[in-house]
Each structure stands twice: as C-alpha cells, then as structure tokens.
C-alpha cells in the first residue's frame, strides 16, 4: 500500500482544481480576447471540465474517496469522447478547423490532451490508499475543507466559473439549441432587436 496522508491529498486535489479552473479561464480569455464564440461541442467539453471540477470539489469538501475520483473519471471520459469527436471532424485534410491554433494545436486537441492527463492523474491518485483514512482535520469542528484555505479558495473559484459559464452560454445560445457554428450572442441580439 502506498501512503499519502489526507492533508496533502486535499492540497493536491486543490491544486488540481486550480489547474482545471485555469483551463476554463484560458477558454474564456480566448473567447473574449479573440472574439471566438465556443461551438456546441466546445461547450460540452467545458461541461465535462466542470464535471471534473465537481469531483475535485467533493474531495475538498468531504475528503478523498474513491467514488469522487470515479466521478472525475466519468466526466473526463465524457470530455475525451467529445473532443475526439471534434478532432475526427477536422482530421481529413481540407475540412478546415474551428478556432485559432494555440502553439500549433486547436482548442479541441488541447482539450483531448487535458482529458487524457486528467484520467492519468486521477488513476495515479487512486493508488494512494492512505488518503481515505479519517484524521483529526476531518472532525466537524474543523468545518469543511479540512480547515485549509487553499481548498476553500479553489472551491469558490470553480463555483464562480460554473455559474459564469451558465450565464455566458445562456447569452450565446438562449433557451434553445446552440447554433453550429455560432455567429453571435443570440440572446443579446434578440434583446437588441426587440428593444
């Protein structure tokens, strides 16, 4: 059995959550700086990232448990399936691409790599059985997040990003089906034309 105490496990999960949040923030940066609207498949990849974030949040709140990692794996496999679908869509020469390349690769290719790394990282974390033990920091008087600050900060950043994606996706797609490819923020345009 490989030993990893609950306290460092929670810190590692918090760092993981900050990395996932960083990917979502980078996606926002490209969306607003380059004025490139995310396509429906791109949005589904973001949903998968939030799903991975949800699994990490559970680890931060309740402490590490195998089924929390299972939730992360389910979300990452789903995200990997979406990004693979989008990579295959453009893999034939002459079929173009979606969005600008970043360091020579398109967003969906980077997303595929990220989901692969998440699966790999989660599988490695599952090896450390010592993290599943209850310790003093998990007592109720220490509150949620084991009384640590970093997990608390990481949790609220992810919560904010999940809520922000709800709003921006609603502005882009409205209550109906997202346009493929999207050309503008549908809801804002509808409000402008009606007002």
């Amino acid at each position: 059995m490989i030993i990893l105490a609950p306290h460092p496990s929670r810190t590692l999960n918090a760092i993981g959550l900050l990395v996932v949040s960083g990917i979502l923030i980078a996606a926002y940066a490209f969306q607003f700086a380059l004025d490139e609207l995310p396509c429906p498949l791109c949005l589904l990849q973001r949903v998968a990232l939030v799903g991975v974030g949800y699994g990490l949040c559970l680890n931060l709140i309740y402490g590490a448990k195998p089924h929390h990692y299972g939730i992360m794996l389910l979300s990452a496999v789903y995200g990997g399936a979406v990004s693979t679908r989008q990579i295959l869509l453009h893999i034939v020469p002459g079929t173009g691409s979606y969005g600008s390349p970043v360091l020579g690769l398109h967003y969906y290719t980077w997303a595929g790599i990220c989901f692969f790394l998440i699966i790999l990282g989660t599988a490695i974390m599952l090896l450390f059985e010592g993290q599943y033990r209850k310790t003093l920091v998990d007592k109720p008087e220490h509150g949620r997040f084991g009384g640590q600050t970093l997990p608390r900060i990481a949790f609220f950043i992810m919560l904010f990003l999940a809520a922000a994606n709800t709003v921006t996706t609603f502005l882009e797609c409205g209550p109906g089906i997202c346009a493929d490819p999207p050309t503008d923020y549908k809801l804002i345009n509808e409000l402008k034309t009606s007002g």
Partner: peptide, 22 residues
C-alpha cells in the same frame, strides 16, 4: 439548453457544499 447543463452542475456543487450529497 447547454446552459442548463452548466446550471445543473452549479446546483450540484452548491448542494455538495450544503451537505446535501445524495
């Protein structure tokens, strides 16, 4: 409808935070 997925994920995170894990 994809915004609904994000909304549900947000709700799931909030519920976990409020100890409504089931």
């Amino acid at each position: 409808m994809i915004s609904l997925l994000f909304a549900l994920m947000t709700i799931a995170i909030v519920l976990a935070w409020r100890d409504r894990w089931r």
